[in-house]
Simulated scan of single mutants.
Amino acid sequence: MATILDGKAVSEKRLELLKEAIGESGLYPRLATVIVGSEPASQMYVRMKHRACERVGIGSIGIECPGDATTEKVIESITRLNRDPDINGILVQLPLPKQIDTERVIAAVNTDKDVDGFHPTSLGLLMSGKPRFAPCTPKGIMTLLAEYKIPLAGARAVVAGRSIDVGRPMAALLTNADATVTVCHSRTRDLPAELRRADILISAVGKAHFITPEMVKPGAVVIDVGINQLNGKLVGDVDFDGIKDIASAITPVPGGVGPMTIATLMENTFAAATRME
């Protein structure tokens, strides 16, 4: 039976340590969230982030734009937050509605307040091996791997999915940690064979139970980033029940990567406040 990588427990520990650090710092970090429209999942994620802020001593404000807002209107809101000296971090809740130019909106965020790590400058610094703010999900995964003392140097890591919010920055962080990294995607030839080579397998494809037992090497560490609905249940990309006896360690869904993402956002926001001090 694999070791369960308990992201919920690790995030709780990280948030308690962060609360202490913020209390001792004398700083009052503040995070602003920007949401466009009323998509229920996005609203739920934003509420979770505000609750985490309250817990650790970070102030938060929420900017809500109507679902039919233009790109220019959203950028106006971001520009006001950029200019506000009391705001340390800005998070734009993704995905944005189709009429919004997401790239322009992300590029409008002041790089010193880019606690989500998606600005082209932030991603460039990450790729160069000198990250300022790394995207929260990949960075949270790195924290989780470190907490369980999973060695990365020299390990063969395979990332399934090449998105800009998870797959690509995940590959960069693993490369910076001296892993040998392969990024797989929809055009990868013989995907199961590539996945079976992984010492560390990270799935961010967004398809329920996409990763099956025959795709996993015995003893691999399996990180499941997926959040999918299947028969009314929340499940990951990984067939957890089928793989838990093959892998040496595995994240559950829920309770694995998700809590680490929020804890990392809080840590990035405090780091931004410290940098601006």
Rank of each mutant, 00 (worst) to 15 (best):
L91N: 04
V221T: 15
K207S: 10
D190T: 08
I106V: 10
L173T: 07
D86Y: 11
E12T: 10
I243D: 12
A108K: 11
L15H: 08
L15G: 06
D6T: 12
E20M: 08
T3D: 05
L195M: 11
M44G: 01
V158I: 15
M266P: 13
I200A: 04
V10F: 11
K139A: 13
L191I: 14
L18I: 11
I150V: 12
H50E: 15
G67T: 06
M48W: 02
G117D: 03
D116S: 14
G129F: 01
K244Q: 09
K217S: 13
S203G: 12
L5I: 01
A249K: 02
D190P: 05
A177D: 10
P131K: 10
P151N: 07
D241W: 01
T180D: 08
I200R: 10
T264Q: 15
H209D: 14
P252R: 15
S128Y: 00
I4N: 12
E76D: 13
Q93N: 03
V253E: 04
I90A: 08
E39F: 04
F270Y: 15
I61T: 05
A160L: 15
R168L: 14
V221C: 00
I141V: 15
E103Y: 08
P169R: 14
K19Q: 13
A263V: 09
G219E: 06
R187Q: 13
S77K: 14
